[in-house]
Design a protein around this nucleic acid. Structure first.
Ligand SMILES: [Mn+2]
Ligand SMILES: [Mn+2]
Ligand SMILES: [Zn+2]
Ligand SMILES: [Zn+2]
Lengths: 121, 121
DNA sequence: ATTACAATTTAGAATTATTCTAATTAGGCC
DNA sequence: GGCCTAATTAGAATAATTCTAAATTGTAAT
């Protein structure tokens, strides 16, 4: 854990809105003005590799970063653009629903959903 | 349906291995040497918009294109790199497993899995 | 058949998120 | 302090995709 990695991580914890690398860069700059974008990418990569954060991809948009350690999937509200964390229901295994070949070992699984949420009055 | 769109579509039907745009370009060139890469992108986009094919994204790798019209997800065998279509078990709705907010309307859903398949003897 | 028109294709340039390179800096340890 | 390794930095490079503007095509009307 270097100073830079710590501040990148704390920025992610502070506002869990799934920012892009560039969003993170701009936020980190406010308290560490000398940091470089390359370092932000390096830090995000290091934090990912150590399992502290997750990289989230919607189609071919810039990657976003998620600090929620619980298993969950991502729902992007097409009206607001906001990305919501969606948990699994109690005791549910997504792979139970799939016709996986015998012996298949899942190592990574990413589920992204786009749709509408009802307006919140 | 233009000549170019038809040949792009037929190439995809011919070999359902989830090729990239560039793979498609090289295959199409063999029977229509004057086609341009931009046109391949345009055609893939048009076919996608009309629901004949699907764009498949694994992380930030180049998009791949899938001509399987049935609902399914994608499993990449990490040893061979081959992408397999995985169907849902009878009558299974993935969103049933999720704690979606009331009234959420799913418009798009993409599930990608990476893992190991047992060697096929 | 010729013309008109809109949509598509084309070549090449532009875009842009990300990665790479090479030089500098930082931090732990003797 | 000096040594060593890993991390950071600025900037260039990369590469998938998109954009631009001109040429081509196909179709429909005259
Ligand atoms: Mn952003
Ligand atoms: Mn390829
Ligand atoms: Zn999340
Ligand atoms: Zn498929």
């Amino acid at each position: 854990m270097t100073k830079q990695r710590r501040v990148v991580y704390s920025i992610l914890l502070e506002n869990r809105d799934h920012p892009t690398a560039n969003d993170v860069f701009r936020r980190v700059q406010r308290e560490m003005s000398t940091i470089s974008l390359a370092t932000v990418y390096n830090c995000l990569d290091a934090l990912s590799k150590h399992g502290l954060i997750n990289q989230v991809n919607f189609d071919r948009e810039p990657s976003r970063f998620c600090v929620n350690p619980a298993p969950h999937v991502h729902f992007r509200d097409t009206r607001t653009g906001v990305i919501h964390d969606i948990a699994f229901k109690e005791g549910c295994q997504i792979t139970d629903l799939l016709d996986l070949p015998d012996g298949a070992e899942v190592s990574e699984l990413e589920l992204t959903i786009s749709g509408d949420l009802p307006a919140n009055p």
